[in-house]
Protein backbone atom coordinates (compact mmCIF):
# COMPACT_ATOMS: atom_id res chain seq x y z
CA UNK A 1 0.00 0.00 0.00
CA UNK A 2 2.76 2.42 0.95
CA UNK A 3 4.51 1.81 -2.34
CA UNK A 4 1.35 2.57 -4.28
CA UNK A 5 0.77 5.64 -2.14
CA UNK A 6 4.32 6.79 -2.82
CA UNK A 7 3.96 6.14 -6.51
CA UNK A 8 0.64 7.95 -6.95
CA UNK A 9 1.82 10.79 -4.73
CA UNK A 10 4.98 11.23 -6.80
CA UNK A 11 3.01 10.91 -9.99
CA UNK A 12 0.66 13.67 -8.88
CA UNK A 13 3.46 15.86 -7.62
CA UNK A 14 4.97 15.72 -11.07
CA UNK A 15 1.68 16.40 -12.80
CA UNK A 16 0.71 19.83 -13.94
CA UNK A 17 -2.56 19.95 -12.04
CA UNK A 18 -1.01 19.85 -8.61
CA UNK A 19 1.13 22.82 -9.56
CA UNK A 20 -1.86 24.69 -10.90
CA UNK A 21 -3.76 24.01 -7.71
CA UNK A 22 -0.81 25.02 -5.57
CA UNK A 23 -0.20 28.19 -7.58
CA UNK A 24 -3.88 29.07 -7.43
CA UNK A 25 -3.86 29.03 -3.63
CA UNK A 26 -0.54 30.82 -3.50
CA UNK A 27 -1.88 33.57 -5.70
CA UNK A 28 -5.14 33.71 -3.77
CA UNK A 29 -3.32 34.02 -0.44
CA UNK A 30 -0.98 36.73 -1.67
CA UNK A 31 -3.70 38.75 -3.39
CA UNK A 32 -5.96 38.57 -0.34
CA UNK A 33 -3.22 39.66 2.00
CA UNK A 34 -2.06 42.32 -0.41
CA UNK A 35 -5.54 43.80 -0.69
CA UNK A 36 -6.08 43.93 3.06
CA UNK A 37 -3.24 43.45 5.43
CA UNK A 38 -5.58 42.26 8.15
CA UNK A 39 -4.93 38.57 8.74
CA UNK A 40 -8.19 37.77 10.52
CA UNK A 41 -10.16 39.48 7.75
CA UNK A 42 -8.30 37.43 5.16
CA UNK A 43 -9.06 34.26 7.11
CA UNK A 44 -12.78 34.99 6.89
CA UNK A 45 -12.65 35.65 3.15
CA UNK A 46 -10.57 32.53 2.69
CA UNK A 47 -13.13 30.52 4.59
CA UNK A 48 -15.79 31.51 2.08
CA UNK A 49 -13.60 30.29 -0.72
CA UNK A 50 -12.32 27.13 0.91
CA UNK A 51 -15.73 25.90 1.97
CA UNK A 52 -16.96 26.09 -1.61
CA UNK A 53 -13.90 25.52 -3.77
CA UNK A 54 -12.11 22.75 -1.92
CA UNK A 55 -15.03 20.30 -2.25
CA UNK A 56 -15.45 21.17 -5.93
CA UNK A 57 -11.80 20.74 -6.79
CA UNK A 58 -11.42 17.59 -4.69
CA UNK A 59 -14.44 15.94 -6.30
CA UNK A 60 -13.44 16.78 -9.85
CA UNK A 61 -9.78 16.02 -9.30
CA UNK A 62 -10.51 12.74 -7.54
CA UNK A 63 -12.80 11.48 -10.24
CA UNK A 64 -10.44 12.63 -12.99
CA UNK A 65 -7.49 10.89 -11.43
CA UNK A 66 -9.37 7.66 -11.01
CA UNK A 67 -10.52 7.55 -14.62
CA UNK A 68 -7.07 8.52 -15.86
CA UNK A 69 -5.29 5.81 -13.90
CA UNK A 70 -7.78 3.18 -14.97
CA UNK A 71 -5.18 1.21 -16.91
CA UNK A 72 -2.68 1.48 -14.11
CA UNK A 73 -5.26 0.09 -11.70
CA UNK A 74 -5.92 -2.84 -14.00
CA UNK A 75 -2.21 -3.49 -14.18
CA UNK A 76 -1.95 -3.44 -10.41
CA UNK A 77 -4.92 -5.75 -10.07
CA UNK A 78 -3.09 -8.33 -12.15
CA UNK A 79 -0.36 -8.37 -9.53
CA UNK A 80 -0.62 -10.32 -6.28
CA UNK A 81 -1.76 -7.29 -4.30
CA UNK A 82 -4.63 -6.75 -1.93
CA UNK A 83 -7.42 -4.64 -3.44
CA UNK A 84 -7.76 -2.66 -0.22
CA UNK A 85 -4.15 -1.54 -0.34
CA UNK A 86 -4.35 -0.61 -4.03
CA UNK A 87 -7.36 1.66 -3.60
CA UNK A 88 -6.33 3.02 -0.25
CA UNK A 89 -2.94 3.86 -1.67
CA UNK A 90 -4.41 5.69 -4.63
CA UNK A 91 -6.90 7.52 -2.45
CA UNK A 92 -4.32 8.64 0.05
CA UNK A 93 -2.01 9.70 -2.74
CA UNK A 94 -4.58 11.99 -4.34
CA UNK A 95 -5.97 13.41 -1.12
CA UNK A 96 -2.51 13.83 0.37
CA UNK A 97 -1.12 15.73 -2.58
CA UNK A 98 -4.17 18.00 -2.73
CA UNK A 99 -3.90 18.71 0.98
CA UNK A 100 -0.22 19.46 0.61
CA UNK A 101 -0.96 21.93 -2.19
CA UNK A 102 -3.60 23.60 -0.04
CA UNK A 103 -1.36 23.71 3.00
CA UNK A 104 1.68 25.08 1.19
CA UNK A 105 -0.28 27.37 -1.11
CA UNK A 106 -2.01 29.13 1.75
CA UNK A 107 0.63 28.60 4.41
CA UNK A 108 3.43 30.35 2.54
CA UNK A 109 1.78 33.75 2.02
CA UNK A 110 0.33 33.77 5.52
CA UNK A 111 3.66 32.81 7.05
CA UNK A 112 5.36 35.58 5.10
CA UNK A 113 2.78 38.09 6.33
CA UNK A 114 3.59 37.23 9.94
CA UNK A 115 1.07 34.56 10.84
CA UNK A 116 3.23 33.14 13.60
CA UNK A 117 3.45 36.45 15.40
CA UNK A 118 -0.29 37.12 15.29
CA UNK A 119 -3.08 35.63 17.34
CA UNK A 120 -4.76 34.26 14.25
CA UNK A 121 -2.70 31.10 14.10
CA UNK A 122 -5.45 29.08 15.79
CA UNK A 123 -8.10 30.30 13.38
CA UNK A 124 -5.80 29.67 10.48
CA UNK A 125 -4.98 26.15 11.57
CA UNK A 126 -8.68 25.44 12.02
CA UNK A 127 -9.15 26.65 8.47
CA UNK A 128 -6.43 24.34 7.18
CA UNK A 129 -7.76 21.42 9.20
CA UNK A 130 -11.29 21.81 7.89
CA UNK A 131 -9.88 22.33 4.40
CA UNK A 132 -7.97 19.05 4.66
CA UNK A 133 -11.00 17.26 6.00
CA UNK A 134 -13.09 18.52 3.11
CA UNK A 135 -10.43 17.38 0.65
CA UNK A 136 -10.38 13.88 2.10
CA UNK A 137 -14.17 13.65 2.38
CA UNK A 138 -14.90 14.75 -1.17
CA UNK A 139 -12.10 12.66 -2.60
CA UNK A 140 -13.69 9.66 -0.91
CA UNK A 141 -17.08 10.54 -2.34
CA UNK A 142 -15.54 10.99 -5.78
CA UNK A 143 -13.91 7.54 -5.60
CA UNK A 144 -17.27 6.13 -4.64
CA UNK A 145 -18.88 7.58 -7.71
CA UNK A 146 -15.99 6.63 -9.99
CA UNK A 147 -15.89 3.00 -8.92
CA UNK A 148 -19.62 2.51 -9.34
CA UNK A 149 -19.77 4.22 -12.74
CA UNK A 150 -17.89 2.81 -15.71
CA UNK A 151 -19.25 5.57 -17.92
CA UNK A 152 -17.01 8.61 -17.50
CA UNK A 153 -19.54 11.18 -18.60
CA UNK A 154 -22.06 9.82 -16.14
CA UNK A 155 -19.44 9.76 -13.42
CA UNK A 156 -18.50 13.39 -13.98
CA UNK A 157 -22.16 14.31 -14.06
CA UNK A 158 -22.81 12.68 -10.73
CA UNK A 159 -19.72 14.26 -9.23
CA UNK A 160 -20.73 17.77 -10.25
CA UNK A 161 -24.26 17.10 -9.07
CA UNK A 162 -22.95 15.91 -5.72
CA UNK A 163 -20.98 19.10 -5.25
CA UNK A 164 -23.89 21.24 -6.39
CA UNK A 165 -26.18 19.48 -3.96
CA UNK A 166 -23.86 19.79 -0.97
CA UNK A 167 -22.76 23.34 -1.65
CA UNK A 168 -25.93 24.98 -2.93
CA UNK A 169 -29.10 22.91 -3.13
CA UNK A 170 -28.84 21.52 0.38
CA UNK A 171 -28.74 25.04 1.82
CA UNK A 172 -31.68 26.03 -0.33
CA UNK A 173 -33.76 23.14 0.98
CA UNK A 174 -32.55 23.90 4.48
CA UNK A 175 -33.66 27.52 4.12
CA UNK A 176 -37.03 26.52 2.73
CA UNK A 177 -37.64 24.14 5.61
CA UNK A 178 -36.70 26.80 8.11
CA UNK A 179 -39.11 29.29 6.56
CA UNK A 180 -41.98 26.85 6.11
CA UNK A 181 -41.73 25.57 9.67
CA UNK A 182 -40.86 28.91 11.28
CA UNK A 183 -43.68 28.50 13.81
CA UNK A 184 -41.96 25.50 15.37
CA UNK A 185 -38.82 25.35 17.47
CA UNK A 186 -36.09 24.69 14.97
CA UNK A 187 -32.96 24.58 17.10
CA UNK A 188 -32.50 20.83 17.12
CA UNK A 189 -33.49 20.56 13.50
CA UNK A 190 -30.93 23.11 12.37
CA UNK A 191 -28.25 21.48 14.49
CA UNK A 192 -28.94 18.10 12.90
CA UNK A 193 -29.23 19.56 9.41
CA UNK A 194 -25.87 21.28 9.81
CA UNK A 195 -24.15 18.15 11.00
CA UNK A 196 -25.50 16.14 8.06
CA UNK A 197 -23.65 18.25 5.50
CA UNK A 198 -19.86 18.44 5.80
CA UNK A 199 -19.72 21.78 4.01
CA UNK A 200 -22.23 23.37 6.40
CA UNK A 201 -20.51 21.77 9.34
CA UNK A 202 -17.15 23.24 8.38
CA UNK A 203 -18.70 26.63 7.70
CA UNK A 204 -20.38 26.81 11.09
CA UNK A 205 -17.30 25.53 12.83
CA UNK A 206 -15.16 28.31 11.38
CA UNK A 207 -17.86 30.95 11.88
CA UNK A 208 -18.12 30.13 15.55
CA UNK A 209 -14.38 30.19 15.99
CA UNK A 210 -14.21 33.63 14.39
CA UNK A 211 -16.33 35.08 17.18
CA UNK A 212 -19.39 35.72 15.10
CA UNK A 213 -21.30 33.50 17.49
CA UNK A 214 -23.00 36.33 19.32
CA UNK A 215 -24.38 37.52 16.02
CA UNK A 216 -26.32 34.34 15.83
CA UNK A 217 -28.44 35.51 18.74
CA UNK A 218 -30.73 33.04 20.42
CA UNK A 219 -30.35 30.58 17.59
CA UNK A 220 -26.65 30.84 18.03
CA UNK A 221 -26.79 30.28 21.75
CA UNK A 222 -27.73 26.70 21.01
CA UNK A 223 -24.90 26.34 18.53
CA UNK A 224 -22.42 28.03 20.78
CA UNK A 225 -23.44 25.74 23.59
CA UNK A 226 -22.80 22.78 21.36
CA UNK A 227 -19.84 23.75 19.20
CA UNK A 228 -18.30 26.48 21.31
CA UNK A 229 -17.00 24.13 23.97
CA UNK A 230 -14.04 21.82 23.65
CA UNK A 231 -16.48 18.93 23.59
CA UNK A 232 -18.40 20.56 20.75
CA UNK A 233 -15.31 21.13 18.63
CA UNK A 234 -14.17 17.59 19.29
CA UNK A 235 -17.56 16.15 18.38
CA UNK A 236 -17.70 18.29 15.23
CA UNK A 237 -14.29 17.01 14.20
CA UNK A 238 -15.45 13.48 15.03
CA UNK A 239 -18.44 14.03 12.80
CA UNK A 240 -16.14 15.14 10.00
CA UNK A 241 -14.12 12.00 10.68
CA UNK A 242 -17.29 9.96 10.17
CA UNK A 243 -17.88 11.79 6.95
CA UNK A 244 -14.38 10.85 5.94
CA UNK A 245 -14.53 7.20 6.89
CA UNK A 246 -17.98 6.21 5.60
CA UNK A 247 -17.43 7.03 1.89
CA UNK A 248 -13.98 5.51 2.10
CA UNK A 249 -15.37 2.33 3.59
CA UNK A 250 -18.14 2.01 1.01
CA UNK A 251 -15.76 2.66 -1.87
CA UNK A 252 -13.35 -0.01 -0.67
CA UNK A 253 -16.24 -2.39 -0.20
CA UNK A 254 -17.37 -1.65 -3.74
CA UNK A 255 -13.87 -2.05 -5.10
CA UNK A 256 -13.53 -5.45 -3.44
CA UNK A 257 -16.71 -6.76 -5.03
CA UNK A 258 -16.33 -5.14 -8.41
CA UNK A 259 -15.58 -7.21 -11.46
CA UNK A 260 -12.93 -5.32 -13.37
Amino acid sequence: MLKILKYSFKDLMRSRWSYVYFLFYLLLGFVLLFLNNDLSKAVITLMNIIVVLVPLISTIFGIMYYYNSREFIELLLAQPLKRTSIFLGLYLGVAGSLTLSLFLGLGLPFALYGLFKSGDILNFSLLIITGSFLTFIFNGLAFNIAISNENRIKGFGYAVLLWLFMAVIYDGLFLLTLIVFEEYPLDTFSLVATVLNPIDLSRILILLELDISALLGYTGANFKAFFGTRLGITSALLMLMFWLLIPLWTSIKQAKRKDF
Binding site: M47, N48, V51, V52, A167, V168, I169, D171, G172, F174, L175, S190, T194, D200, R203, I204, L207, I212, L215, L216, G217, T219, G220, F223
Partner: peptide, 8 residues
Protein backbone atom coordinates in the same frame (compact mmCIF):
# COMPACT_ATOMS: atom_id res chain seq x y z
CA UNK B 1 -28.93 33.09 10.26
CA UNK B 2 -26.99 29.85 10.41
CA UNK B 3 -26.85 29.97 6.62
CA UNK B 4 -24.64 33.06 6.90
CA UNK B 5 -21.83 33.09 4.34
CA UNK B 6 -23.13 30.08 2.46
CA UNK B 7 -22.92 30.02 -1.32
CA UNK B 8 -26.67 29.71 -1.72
Amino acid sequence: LILLRSLF
